[in-house]
Design a protein around this nucleic acid. Structure first.
Length: 570
RNA sequence: GCCCCUGUAGUUCAAUGGAUAGAACAUCGGACUUCUAAGCCGGUUAUGUAGGUUCGAUUCCUGCCAGGGGCACCA
């Protein structure tokens, strides 16, 4: 890699003039006129020599020029003492060649070669609705999985679902109350899901509003956990199955394929075993009839691991879950993605996990996504039933896309496929455009807008490029990089892709990919609007077609990283 | 009360300690006999506050102000 070679060269020069273990890092300047790479070592080390940064920069540049790298066109000193590198047109042509020959592989790196990583995300609960929060977890988790995969690791996608616990008791209590309205087996999934959702809301409201219902639900929770009543078991099996089948439909649409499914009903027994061990060791203690972990001694807070009824809480199940993951495979890294409201909780749970197995705890990392707030800044809640389900959101956006592409001359099947791809792209973009962990103000109208900064903007640029490539084929123009135009903004953007991927992967920052692709699409759109690519392009046509092809590849790879499809027409 | 997170343009968001803080929406104004106008070109507007560290701070540290989340048997 050119970047590393240049960094090494600069470090050697610094060492020659007396800097001990120097570190030189090339940056990508925000301003294109500053070249493709810039270096700030002169500013950092000027004080060591007691000279002006510009003078030190000159020294370094002289040494660099004495052994000039063949891919460097020119080196200049700018600003307070930045060293800016302008790369040669041969370098750009070579990179474009590389993009076209590597195709889907372009932009990959080997930072995590040989590693095994597990990412847990989405985590919807059977008996409850799949709401927009799950959509967010899925979008973030899928893109982080793909970034890690693109860095050479073997990735396993895991989904952890709460099939036991108080929410199940609330739902089953509600099912019994509303049993008259229970859909027949033949009726479609949506009806069943609606019924389940309603049952949960009913049970949840009763739990807070009606003291005797609360007692019944608490008792039911124990019955469910012990599987001691056949009739309840029947309701349980029905609800669980309906939920899980529904979830699979959504995963398919979102483009996620899970390798492992974990259920709380499985993690609870292992968790209980662990909790008892920790209690015996004195790490956990009894308090008011419950088993608790006092986090205060580590600057955290106390949490209940086994409640006074003797049932495991989420805390204990999580201990079992994280142990169980490492029983499956020996992972180098385990990532858990949840909403940011669980940040403090995870600190406590991970602290407790240290006492179970320190190496597992050290390899486990919690990443949070933000909460979805409605336009008035309030939290959307599933307990009150005013939730927007994942499904309804996707369907609403799909309808809009369907209308929009009515006059594109597409077949019905094409139209349906594109509708879904663009709708999912629009939703994922609105989630991934900002840094994960921050709340998202979800304004329906804006999030569903296809103008400007949006998923469809990226997909549209890609579809246009594909359209150009189809045209090129039609008029028999073969891509060829020999007759290069002068290097422009589009070429400069294209060669940055691998650097962006590395940064995004290191920081788990998908928004960097989003921002980059948005700028890249802008570059292509401007190029497209101002440059004849085929018609009236004369001798330049083969190069311009090749450039268009390189753009389409990078855009497609970038969209893949974000978990979005790249339709060839729309 | 204690702990954590966040304050950037009218609004929604970007910005690995670096150069003139970058987009989009909104708004106003342009271009089109051409390969997809979900597009292109141009105008206007921002780092909560007071200090500190640094050659250099939106970024790191401290105080204050404002908003959000968490803090015992939900997940």
């Amino acid at each position: 890699m050119l970047k590393k070679e240049l960094e090494k060269q600069i470090e050697n020069i610094l060492r020659d003039i007396g800097v001990e273990s120097p570190r030189a890092e090339l940056d990508t300047p925000a301003e294109m006129s500053h070249g493709e790479y810039s270096c700030n070592v002169a500013l950092a080390y000027a004080k060591v020599f007691g000279i002006k940064p510009a003078d030190l920069a000159q020294k370094i540049v002289d040494a660099l020029l004495a052994k000039k790298h063949p891919h460097v066109e020119s080196i200049e000193i700018a600003g307070a003492g930045f060293i800016n590198f302008h790369l040669s047109s041969e370098f750009f042509v070579k990179t474009l060649e590389k993009i076209i020959s590597e195709k889907d592989l372009y932009g990959k790196n080997d930072l995590r070669a040989g590693e095994k990583v597990i990412v847990e995300y989405t985590d919807p609960n059977p008996f409850k609705q799949f709401h927009i929060g799950h959509l967010m977890s899925n979008a973030v988790g899928e893109t982080i999985s793909r970034l890690i995969e693109f860095s050479g690791a073997k990735i396993k996608r895991a989904n952890y679902q709460g099939d036991v616990g108080l929410h199940v008791a609330k739902a089953i209590w509600g099912m019994q109350e509303l049993s008259g309205a229970m859909p027949y087996t033949k009726e479609d999934t949506l009806k069943k899901i609606e019924f389940l959702g309603g049952a949960y809301v009913h049970g949840s409201n009763a739990y807070t509003e009606d003291e005797s219902a609360k007692k019944e639900i608490d008792a039911l929770n124990k019955v469910i956990f012990e599987k001691s009543d056949d009739k309840i078991n029947g309701l349980y099996d029905w609800g669980r199955k309906v939920s899980l089948e529904h979830f699979e439909d959504i995963y398919a649409k979102l483009g996620t394929k899970f390798d492992y499914y974990f259920f709380e009903s499985e993690t609870a027994p292992l968790g209980m075993f662990i909790a008892e061990e920790l209690l015996a060791k004195g790490i956990f203690e009894k308090s008011e009839g419950a088993v608790v972990f006092k986090g205060e001694q580590y600057g955290l807070h106390t949490r209940v691991f086994v409640n006074s009824a003797g049932l495991p809480t989420y805390e204990t199940k999580d201990l079992g879950l994280n142990k169980m993951k490492f029983d499956r495979e020996d992972f180098d890294l385990s990532i858990i993605i949840t909403a940011n409201e669980q940040n403090e909780y995870f600190k406590v749970m991970l602290k407790a996990l240290e006492f179970v197995d320190a190496s597992i705890a050290n390899k486990t990392r919690h990443i949070s996504h933000g909460m979805l707030l409605s336009a008035d800044g309030k939290k959307m809640s599933s307990r009150k039933g005013d939730v927007i389900t994942g499904e309804s959101l996707i369907v609403d956006v799909e309808k809009m896309v369907y209308e929009k592409i009515a006059d594109r001359g597409l077949s019905d099947t094409e139209r349906e496929v594109i509708m879904s791809q663009v709708a999912v792209g629009a939703i994922k973009y609105s989630i991934l455009r900002q840094s994960p962990g921050r709340d998202i103000i979800f304004d329906f109208k804006k999030s569903l807008s296809f103008e400007g900064d949006s998923g469809p903007y990226l997909q549209y640029a890609h579809a246009r490029a594909c359209s150009v490539l189809r045209k090129a084929k039609e008029v028999e123009i073969v891509a060829d990089l020999k007759k290069a135009d002068s290097t422009g903004a589009l070429e400069k953007m294209l060669i940055q892709f691998p650097n962006v991927v590395v940064r995004a992967e290191k920081d788990f920052a998908p928004q960097l990919v989003v921002t980059y692709l948005t700028e890249l699409a802008g570059s292509f759109n401007a190029y497209y609007a101002n440059t004849p690519i085929i018609i009236d392009a004369g001798d330049s046509a083969p190069y311009r077609v090749a450039l268009t092809s390189a753009f389409a590849i990078v855009m497609k790879n970038g969209l893949w990283l974000l978990g979005m499809q790249a339709p060839e027409r729309m």
